[in-house]
């Protein structure tokens, strides 16, 4: 029965000390996900979604519990090994895009490959064409709309061909029309085999995922398989 999953998170505890008192971000959290899954994380603000994404991506450490991603036990990695894990396995996408303001779209996409030996500019260009920004290669972030910036960020997340894409409220700062396009892009990438996990407050966005996980107080409060029509009926989420 102990079959191996792409992502294995077992009984993870993670707390932050804020002003002397301990805030439990994850409290005995467990989750198994298979490769190629598309998973939406929902839940009220402070539930622990960002914390979970950071832990899966090797950006944050756990206090206790098991975290294995793609067969790699993250608890055993040192700082530079974790960096290398992130570089080769993970693509992060953020709510505020987090592009480097001084760099063009193309250069932003190339940032993760900055120290690499091989020249990935052709691949970066292809990725920007792929996300519909083929004509914006030399544009700075400030010349682009939120949706366009997020697409640059997606191309950047893809440059090193990651196994898993982690997106933290990727459509949180984007109008709903553009958000649909972004999610559509996620679906395409997922269909090509990339495992996707994203945190969102938007029920329609979450409805596109195959698996929907609801977190509350650092634990899973429900897990659902999305029906084919992509419609999921949930209580309204209020912050």
């Amino acid at each position: 029965m102990d079959d191996v999953h792409f992502i294995e998170i077992e009984d993870v505890h993670k707390g932050y000390t804020v002003g002397g008192s301990l805030v439990k971000a994850l409290d005995g959290f467990s989750l198994h996900l298979d490769e190629g899954e598309m998973c939406a994380l929902m839940g009220p603000s402070g539930a622990g979604k960002t914390t979970l994404l950071n832990i899966i991506g090797g950006l944050d450490t756990v206090d206790s519990g098991k975290v294995v991603v793609g067969g790699i036990d993250l608890n055993r990695l040192g700082e530079s090994q974790k960096a290398s894990f992130r570089k080769h396995n993970v693509g992060f996408i953020f709510q505020f895009f987090n592009l480097i303001p001084s760099l063009t779209a193309l250069e932003n996409v190339l940032v993760p490959a900055m120290f690499g030996r091989s020249d990935l500019s052709q691949r970066a260009e292809d990725l920007l064409v792929r996300v519909g920004l083929g004509k914006r290669l030399d544009h700075l972030p400030k010349m682009m709309s939120g949706g366009e910036r997020q697409r640059v960020a997606i191309a950047r997340a893809l440059i090193n061909d990651p196994k898993v894409l982690l997106a933290d409220e990727p459509t949180g700062n984007i109008d709903s029309e553009t958000a649909r396009e972004i999610v559509h892009l996620f679906q395409e990438l997922n269909n090509e085999g990339t495992t996707m996990i994203f945190a969102t407050h938007d029920r329609l966005v979450a409805g596109r995922a195959k698996v929907m996980i609801r977190i509350r107080d650092g634990r899973i409060s429900s897990r659902k398989k999305s029906p084919k029509d992509g419609m999921i009926h949930l209580r309204d989420e209020k912050e």
Partner: peptide
């Protein structure tokens, strides 16, 4: 935030320092 991004895309603190 930029340092955070550099770390997230896979640079160690050493590499960020190098930049």
């Amino acid at each position: 935030a930029e340092i955070g991004v550099l770390r997230s895309v896979g640079f160690s603190s050493r590499e960020v320092m190098r930049i």
